[in-house]
Amino acid sequence: MTLAAYAICLKGIIWREGLRFLHQRERFVSALVRPLVWLFIFAAGFRQVLGISIIPPYETYILYEVYITPGLLAMIQLFNGMQSSLSMVYDREMGNMRVLLLSPFPRWFLLFGKLIAGTLVSVSQCYAYLLIAWLWDIEAPPLGYLTVLPAFFLVGLMLGALGMLLSSLIKQLENFAGVMNFVIFPMFFASSALYPLWRVKEGSPWVYYICQINPFTHAVELIRFALYTQFNPLAFAVVFGCTLVFMLGAIVAYDPSRGLMTLRGAPGAAA
């Protein structure tokens, strides 16, 4: 296979994911409505309750809406990562996944292509959210809109890879509700998305430690710092490391020679 053939394959995977996304307009709307509800309603009500002291990367006192914006951006990416994992479970049940896995390109490349495609979708959603937030007077430094792009990519890849790993572990579509309860909600609430960690520490040191080891906390912080043109090395290291681990896990789980698919039996092939 030539390099051009690899490019054609990658383009095809991204094109199909984009088309699928365009066909599901409600997916785009719901991906935006969720964080906007948090922003317009939750944050408006909560701003009087929770005072935010000056913490990096912020240099002044900030409104609560400003504080939770990076968390909500990461939330968009979290839902998107899980949604693409849902689409992979759906694809597997509907048989579309077989079309992908029958390609003569290396399996890691096919799964990586899927990840890139899902990440591009989530990045576009994040920018749509940032635009609405900007209209709501939540502004980041102009350069921040550019410096946050690599952070969006890395976080998108990490959460997409996590979703992919989960999709290889989920046997049936119905089990996906469990992912909502056991992955999305704990990850989101046990993080710095809604409240600064020093506040959490005051309330419960245990929850604080859980938040610290939650990769989603570091995803939020990577986005928060990047949006204010700053680099958070710890957040980057954690997100980068987790991306590699999740990606490797997903590739191994989808590899027929070692993966879990064989042990569990792929759908539709029980006869």
Binding site: R98, L102, P256, R258, T262, A269
Partner: peptide, 16 residues
């Protein structure tokens, strides 16, 4: 139930 689909899954590498 004869094993036809299993054989197909092996030939297509969906199963190891």
């Amino acid at each position: 139930g004869a094993g036809k689909s299993t054989l197909f899954s092996l030939v297509t590498r969906l199963f190891a």
